[in-house]
């Protein structure tokens, strides 16, 4: 079924608005709140991130089981092992420096936080830097690509079983993280 472009864009706008509302309501418009994740006092980022992933994962599994979603037709991000590991570490460092990620920086700017404007400027500068350096990084960028593979193919397990396992791991992680919060919160209080 082909959806006309204007409806897709309208959907994009509504999705974005909801995304922005959710991010702001979770407190991610505030860099100090977000960065508390890395000081163990408020593990919100971990909770939001993983509960979103688990919900979406379970939902996608169920919709594809019911036949309402064709998992062969959806976009699966490619895996580039070394670029994503190294890039992830650099991203983490930048994250602690700024206290924001690209999406939450938008929310932060539009709730008046001026430091987020500096992050915006930095991001544009970083993109230009990347565009300049890209020819030199050609080799590294496409290094160790293993394609649009899914985790269950990688481990050679069944889709549903892996979903279940990840849900269990996530629940255990949430419990653990809650305990860490209580402990560190008590120490800090």
């Amino acid at each position: 079924m082909e959806i006309p472009e204007i409806y897709l864009l309208l959907f994009a706008l509504l999705t974005g608005i909801a995304f922005g509302i959710f991010l702001e309501k979770a407190g991610f418009g505030n860099a100090r709140k977000l960065v508390e994740q890395f000081y163990f006092t408020d593990m919100r980022m971990f909770k939001v991130l993983f509960s979103a992933i688990v919900t979406a994962m379970a939902g996608i599994y169920w919709l594809s089981y019911l036949g309402w979603l064709d998992i062969t037709q959806i976009y699966i991000n490619g895996t580039y092992i070394w670029p994503q590991v190294i890039g992830g570490v650099i991203f983490g460092v930048g994250f602690v420096m700024t206290g924001l990620c690209p999406g939450t920086a938008c929310v932060s700017v539009f709730t008046g936080k001026l430091d987020a404007l500096a992050v915006f400027a930095g991001m544009f500068a970083g993109l230009i830097l990347f565009a300049e350096l890209e020819p030199m990084l050609e080799g590294i960028l496409s290094y160790s690509s293993i394609g649009d593979i899914s985790l269950y193919e990688l481990f050679n397990v069944e889709y549903g079983i892996l979903t279940f396992v990840i849900i269990l791991i996530a629940l255990a992680a949430f419990w653990f993280v809650g305990k860490v919060e209580e402990r560190i919160g008590k120490k800090a209080a």
């Binding site: 860099a31 460092v93 930048g94 994250f95 700024t98 987020a116 500096a118 992050v119 991001m123 970083g126």
Partner: peptide, 11 residues
């Protein structure tokens, strides 16, 4: 914040 933004976008 600016420097962090550079790092993040690059990464």
């Amino acid at each position: 914040a600016f420097s962090g933004g550079v790092l993040m976008a690059f990464a």
